[in-house]
Design a protein around this nucleic acid. Structure first.
Length: 838
RNA sequence: GCCCGGGUGGCGGAAUGGUAGACGCGAGGGACUUAAAAUCCCUUGGAGGUAACUCCGUGCGGGUUCGAGUCCCGCCCUGGGCACCA
């Protein structure tokens, strides 16, 4: 047996290596973000903090976390003071549902989940500053969530209003949309009905447009580096629309008049009827005491019920009923019958709209209900115009359409009259300019236990009072029954409504003059806040997580804010990202911070699917447990594999076989360090070139979130090095530096084995040399009429004449040129030759 | 329905308008081994050809261009979001 078989091979023991470096990093507090160090530029890298579910970490979590860890480690090497924190979005429905089922208190199950999540995340070796860890369900955090409620309330940005909730009469509880399946309760299959409750709203609509120094939710998007699709998502969500409100729309023979919003006022002379939302409070008045009262009321009830069933397709709806009333039309086109129509949305505009022949849905509604239509603009083509006149189809949104009415605009094009026409009708006193938005105010009340209590109290006459700040936090009480009893779980708690404490609060309120002396406090607000409120401000808390006096100090927020890079799933395109921007803008408007956008740069990770290409789920049995991958192959392998799978933002299926590719790469690296002959000799020309090419590619790819191609370049380099007899240390050092952000345990261990005393993380990120990285030779393709007919090996910077001469000499090319005349020579330096022949 | 993505080998994917398929997985063949694992080497889009090489090929149909996976127009299929899941 050859001697080499007895040579002790140092095996790649990932478990031992990873544990060793976790301890080293932890002991030396190496990832502490320094509040004091002003010598380095700051960079704040934030992950969307996870909801610690009882299922434990999903392989989807480490995808984003690895990306931010790569960026964080890379930037530290580049000399930045990096803030990279982690925490827990710990309030929410699942823990409460779990409590109802198992009687285990949400706090207990949530804290257990956090412990598991934390262990799993730590095993992956992410460079978080754990001293800044936060959990939204802890009083030291939710005290400040409540402070934000107070802050908004004091500034007129929180108000109470009645709104419908999904109500299950069998379970006696409010249901989340998620718990409503096709209009029925998920648990007991009972039909869900609407129930109107007084609920708290935040006035997010106040921040759509710019105000003073604070950019609005719309224009602010223009200055941040976010994916365009996400910006579009937010713009569409906000749904800004400019138009007019028609005024003095009086109901004939009644003392009622409406305003009606119109985003396309050009065709107002076509209006022949109007439609009102079933929920409109005036509907009852319109039909009161008439023969229409009964059928209309029945119709309204029917529509409301169908809307609750979530199966309501606004676009296809054309159900309606006549109210028996008409609008006394001020335009001189006759009275407009008022119909109740299922498709009219109460939340948009004023809930009453005019209808005309130039709107597709109005057109369909009129045809279905035999209502009059009257086109006022026509296509240029007389044949087509006839069809429009005959109401064969709905003619709309054609800029070239020719207007017939009003007389003042006759002959002009629809596409250019808008502004003039609006001025005209405004001057005539028919309308006023109006901007509308699809977005509604944010409903934050939740009739649940596991959330931050809303810091309000009520007196015996149901008047509301904001809690004095020194009464915060309002603790979640323990004496609560999670089983639904028809109202918020907190309503039942004795300790929550402790009369002694209420008396103390009452005294304070009276002393400060905010409460009349003859009133008596009787209860606290028993609703809690939407968990999105907790996650709307957590990025500020990370900057100053231990602060007992403020949610975060102005000084530290100026120092660390805003978040330079934010990474998370695209499912948060609208809600979370919009709410966090709203909070930031509110803080900015009221002088707390100097930035009005919280996240300068945003990137989304794509979802990781199961091996079957389907979404991972327990029921499908295709869930991959990261613990098993870490145990078998190590954290570095999991990190490498997840980054290598494909483009960061794309959805990609898991492949357990594919993990092997990443593992083999790491083992090759390990083998070179532990087995190959490392030499102090300078790298040869090709190896040096490879080093600089790799450095260049990895540097650029990290910055552009192209981690998959960065890794493939490292694979190319290791394949090259493997073929060398002696491996130059200098080359391995460059490779390990590139590898460090991706597989930090492996890189540190190898670095140490190479004899380095200091850690690789303390090395500066090396600069590449463009001149060395450059290829000097290339295979230049030669096309004839766009088809590849040969290649020539030439210097990259070869000139046109020289290249053409070589190209013509290439045998296969010459063959194809026989008997043809070259009419055009395309030469793209360093790229290609294309000869166009007759 | 509305809004936003995506369709490239057996699979994940790569390609500033310039040789389509880098890198990895899988598969086939070989080396080492008593054997297996591990590792290493070779082949690997399809069809034809001993070979040189040729033809076809990036969801479908058109267009722009010397040249299109990439840009434009029209389709088909598919995934995600849609306000109380987070």
């Amino acid at each position: 047996m050859p001697l080499s078989h007895f040579r002790m091979q140092k095996t790649y023991d990932h478990q031992k290596i990873e544990k060793k470096w976790h301890q080293k990093w932890f002991k030396a507090k190496l990832f502490r973000a320094s509040d004091e160090d002003k010598s380095k530029p700051k960079y704040y890298v934030l992950d969307m903090f996870p909801y610690p579910s009882s299922a434990g970490l999903h392989v989807g979590h480490p995808e984003g976390y690895t990306a931010t860890d790569i960026i964080s480690r890379y930037l530290r090497m580049k000399g930045y003071n990096v803030l990279h924190p982690m925490g827990w979005d710990a309030f929410g429905l699942p823990a409460e549902n779990y409590a109802i089922k198992t009687k285990i208190h949400p706090e207990k199950s949530t804290l257990a989940s956090i412990t598991t999540f934390k262990r799993q995340i730590q095993e992956l070796g992410f460079s978080y500053d754990w001293e800044r860890e936060i959990a939204t369900c802890l009083p030291e955090y939710y005290q400040w969530t409540q402070w934000f409620f107070c802050f908004l309330y004091k500034n007129g940005l929180a108000y109470k209003k009645k709104a419908p909730v999904n109500w299950c009469n069998d379970c006696q509880t409010v249901l989340a949309n998620e718990q409503v399946v096709e209009g029925h309760c998920e648990r007991c299959k009972f039909p869900v009905t609407p129930k109107f409750l007084a609920q708290w709203f935040f006035k997010i609509t106040d921040f759509i447009d710019d105000t003073g120094e604070t950019s609005g939710l719309l224009s602010g998007l223009d200055k941040i580096d976010w994916p365009e699709s996400t910006k579009i998502g937010q713009r569409n969500w906000i749904g800004r629309s400019e138009g007019v409100n028609w005024i003095n729309q009086r109901v004939k023979d009644m003392d009622i008049s409406f305003e009606m919003y119109d985003s396309v006022p050009q065709t107002y002379m076509a209006q022949r009827f109007c439609v009102i939302a079933p929920e409109h409070p005036m509907v009852a008045k319109l039909v009161e005491g008439t023969e229409h009262e009964k059928p209309v009321t029945e119709f309204v009830e029917k529509v409301k019920k169908r809307k609750m069933e979530n199966k309501f397709d606004l676009e296809k709806e054309k159900d309606g009923i006549f109210t028996g009333r008409v609008i006394d039309n001020p335009f001189g086109t006759g009275d407009l019958p008022i119909w109740v129509a299922s498709f009219v949305v109460m939340d948009y505009g004023t809930g009453v709209v005019h209808s005309s022949a130039h709107d597709e849905r109005d057109f369909a509604f009129a045809k279905a209900n035999n209502l009059p239509l009257h086109p006022v603009m026509f296509p240029e083509d007389p044949e087509e115009a006839k069809k429009v006149e005959a109401l064969e189809y709905c003619y709309h949104h054609d800029p070239m359409a020719i207007m017939q009415e009003p007389a003042e605009f006759k002959g002009r094009r629809w596409g250019e009259v808008r502004e003039d026409l609006i001025d005209f009708v405004v001057k005539k006193g028919l309308a006023k300019r109006q901007t509308n938005y699809k977005m509604r105010d944010w409903l934050v009340s939740r009739q649940r236990y596991w959330g931050a209590p809303i810091p309000m109290v009520y007196d015996d006459q149901e008047n509301e009072y904001l809690l004095p700040e020194d009464e915060l936090p309002v603790h979640l009480p323990e004496d609560v029954d999670f089983n639904p009893k028809g109202e918020s779980p907190l309503t039942q708690s004795k300790s929550f409504h402790d009369q002694k404490i209420l008396a103390r609060i009452e005294e304070k309120l009276k002393k400060s003059g905010s409460m009349p002396k003859d009133r008596k406090l009787v209860r606290r607000e028993s609703d809690t806040m939407d968990t999105f409120v907790c996650s709307s401000w957590y990025m500020w808390r990370f900057m100053d997580p231990k602060n007992k006096k403020e949610f975060a100090s102005k000084k530290l927020m100026e120092q660390w804010g805003p978040v330079d890079l934010y990474v998370g799933g695209a499912e948060h395109t609208v809600l979370h990202l919009l709410y966090a921007r709203f909070f930031c803008k509110a803080l900015h408007r009221h002088g707390y911070i100097s930035t009005d956008e919280p996240f300068t740069k945003l990137r989304h990770q794509g979802m990781i699917l199961g091996e079957d290409g389907e979404k991972m789920s327990k029921s499908r049995g295709n869930v991959i447990n990261p613990d098993e991958i870490v145990k078998q192959y190590g954290a570095d392998t999991l990190r490498m594999y997840e980054m290598f799978m494909g483009p960061f933002k794309d959805m990609k299926p898991w492949s357990t076989k594919g993990v092997l590719g990443a593992y083999r790469f790491l083992k090759k690296t390990w083998a070179i360090i532990t087995e190959a002959k490392l030499t102090d000799e300078e790298p040869d020309h090709d190896t040096l070139k490879m080093c600089h090419q790799t450095l260049k590619k990895v540097t650029h790819d990290i910055e552009e979130f192209k981690f998959n191609t960065a890794i493939s370049q490292m694979m190319i380099m290791i394949n090259h090095i493997q073929k060398l007899g002696k491996v130059p240390k200098a080359a391995m050092e460059i490779l390990l530096t590139c590898l460090y952000p991706f597989a930090p345990h492996m890189a540190e261990e190898c670095w140490e084995l190479m004899g380095h005393k200091a850690m690789i993380m303390n090395e500066p990120w090396p600069a590449y040399d463009e001149a060395i990285a450059k290829e000097e030779q290339m295979n230049m393709p030669i096309q004839i009429a766009g088809k590849l007919r040969g290649t020539i090996t030439v210097p990259v910077d070869i000139g046109k004449e020289e290249a053409l001469a070589l190209a013509l000499a290439e045998p296969n090319v010459a063959k194809y040129l026989q008997g043809n005349k070259i009419v055009k020579e395309i030469f793209v330096a360093g790229k290609i030759i294309n000869l166009v022949v007759t």
